[in-house]
């Protein structure tokens, strides 16, 4: 019997999962203007706040194995190439990774011969205006504005936009199930973005 539930396979990224992603895209827009009233437990909210801050910090500090642990086994990391995001089944993205390909990305950097990261790109994320609201059972959704300062070959570059998150409770820990990175210039020329946004 094939093990369909570990991060070395990708059975989970099926049509139902993509449909869910498109529902998240609708929800993250917050069409009503304000985020829905939070009906979630204070401890859970605190855990989620810590999670998204830790995920950004671990990426900045290049603690990439610990960074991967912030993501659930059945997760998606997604940088659309258009703004607003199109359906990734029909349009190319800048990056769209399941957990396995995220591990590939980390392993590539760890070879030490990923020349787009030699010298290593230093980054610092600033997350702000974070809003949390209740998603499905055992899910909290969030959205945050971001600025990333990226230093490569002695030059600074600023990236900005907003993140959409779907956070889920896996066993006893909150994990990122979906992180969507919406660059304000997603449909414009990008530079070397081979760090983690």
């Amino acid at each position: 019997m094939t093990d369909k539930s570990n991060s070395q396979t990708s059975y989970y990224l099926n049509d139902a999962f993509y449909d869910r992603l498109m529902r998240l895209v609708d929800d993250w827009r917050l069409d009503d203007g304000v985020s829905p009233a939070l009906s979630i437990d204070g401890t859970d909210k605190q855990a989620c706040e810590s999670l998204i801050v830790a995920e950004a910090r671990l990426a900045d500090d290049l603690r990439l194995e610990a960074w991967l642990d912030c993501y659930s086994d059945e997760s998606v990391y997604w940088i659309p190439s258009s703004y607003p995001a199109a359906d990734p089944r029909q349009e190319i993205t800048l990056e769209f990774h399941d957990k396995r390909r995220l591990q590939d990305r980390v392993a590539r950097i760890r070879t030490g011969v990923a020349y787009s990261m030699v010298p290593v790109i230093r980054t610092r994320h600033i997350l702000g205006h974070v809003e949390y609201w209740q998603g499905d059972t055992n899910e909290i959704r969030a959205r945050a504005s971001f600025i990333i300062d990226a230093l490569f070959n002695d030059k600074h570059r600023i990236l900005s936009g907003w993140m959409g998150y779907s956070l889920v409770k896996e066993k006893n820990d909150w994990k990122i199930a979906v992180k969507q990175i919406n660059l304000i210039d997603a449909d414009c020329l990008q530079e070397n973005n081979t760090f983690f946004l």
Partner: peptide, 11 residues
């Protein structure tokens, strides 16, 4: 290299 969702699509 295995694409995201490869096994789901193959099936």
């Amino acid at each position: 290299r295995p694409q995201p969702g490869r096994e789901a699509i193959v099936e």
